[in-house]
Amino acid sequence: MSIKKQVLGIFYVILVSFTITKAQNIELNNNTLIPGRAAFSSVEIDEQEVLKVIMDPTVKLFDEPTYAKLKNFEFSNGIIEVEVMSKFLPNAPEWARGFIGVAFRVDKYDSKFESIYIRPDNGRAEDQVRRNHSTQYFAYPDFKFDKLRKEEPEKYESYSDMKMNKWIKMKIVVKGKKASLYLDGNEQPSLVVAEMKQGAKGKGSIALWVGPGTEGYFRNLKVSK
C-alpha cells in the first residue's frame, strides 16, 4: 500500500471516530418534539428558555409513555445528557416523588421503550427505604417499576443524593444491553443496568419523561451516538 493511501486511511479512521463521538446539542421546542401522553411548552427560568413537561392527567397507570419525544430521531447506543428539575404540581398526590427522567429506544408507535428516571424527593428522605428508591430503570410495557421491585428487588433502583426544585444533570450511557446513569458529573454511576429487558439491539427515539404529580423541566440536551 502506498504512503498516500495509508495516510488517507488513517485520516478516515480519525474522521469516523470524531463523527461517532461528537455530541449533538438539541433544541427543545415545537420544531423538534412531539407529545406522547403529556403536554409541553417553552418557559423561561433564570433567563434561559427551558422545556416544561406535564403528563396527561387522564393517565392512571405508572410508567407510561408520558413524555415529549424527539421527532425523526433514531438512537441505539451512545450518551444522553440533560439537566432536569422537578417541582410538585399543586394537586400532586401524597405519594408523588418528583418522577422525572429519560426514555430511549422509543419506537414510532410509543409502544416500546427503555427508561431511567429519578425520584428527587426520595434523595434526602428520613426513611432509608425511600432513599434506596431514588433512581429507577424500567422497560415499557412489560417491566414497570412495581414488577421489577417485586421480582428482582434492588436490582433496578438505587440511592443517590438529590432534591426537588434543583437542576440535576443526568448522563445515561447506553451500550448494547447495558445502561449506566451518572448524576451531576460524578465519575461513578448511581445506577448500573447490566441487562436491559429489551436486549442489546433496540433502537428508536429519545424522550423527556415525567410521572404523576410532576411539573418537569428540561434543558441542555446533548446526544452522542
Rank of each mutant, 00 (worst) to 15 (best):
M1E: 05
K5H: 05
G9K: 04
I10T: 01
Y12I: 12
I14W: 07
L15Y: 02
L15W: 02
F18Q: 03
K22D: 05
A23G: 06
Q24G: 04
N25W: 01
N25M: 10
T32W: 00
A38F: 08
F40K: 00
E44Q: 09
I45C: 04
E47A: 13
V50G: 07
V50P: 05
V53R: 00
I54W: 00
P57W: 03
T58Q: 14
V59C: 10
K60R: 15
L61K: 15
Y67N: 06
A68Y: 03
K69G: 03
K69N: 07
N72K: 10
F73T: 12
E74Y: 00
E74C: 13
E74W: 01
F75S: 05
S76W: 03
S76F: 04
I80S: 01
E83V: 08
M85P: 00
S86C: 11
F88V: 07
F88M: 15
N91A: 14
P93L: 13
E94C: 10
W95M: 13
A96K: 11
G98S: 11
I100W: 04
G101R: 00
F104D: 02
R105W: 11
R105K: 05
V106N: 02
D107N: 12
K108W: 02
Y109N: 14
S111R: 08
K112G: 07
K112V: 08
K112C: 06
F113Y: 09
S115R: 00
S115W: 01
I116A: 09
Y117A: 07
R119V: 07
N122M: 04
N122L: 08
A125L: 11
Q128V: 15
Q128S: 15
Q128C: 10
R131V: 10
R131I: 12
H133I: 12
S134M: 04
S134N: 02
T135I: 09
T135G: 11
Y137F: 09
A139Y: 08
D142N: 15
F143E: 01
K144T: 14
K144A: 11
F145M: 13
R149W: 06
R149E: 02
K150I: 06
E151F: 02
E154P: 00
E154F: 02
K155T: 03
K155W: 00
Y156R: 03
E157H: 07
E157R: 01
E157L: 09
S158K: 09
D161H: 10
D161W: 11
K166H: 11
K175I: 05
K178A: 09
A179E: 09
S180C: 06
S180V: 06
L181M: 04
L181V: 02
G185C: 08
N186S: 15
N186W: 08
Q188F: 03
Q188P: 04
V193S: 04
K201A: 15
G202K: 10
S205L: 02
W209F: 12
V210L: 02
G211S: 09
P212N: 14
P212D: 15
T214W: 06
G216I: 07
G216Y: 07
F218P: 08
R219M: 03
N220E: 09
L221C: 09
K222Q: 13
K222Y: 11
K222C: 12
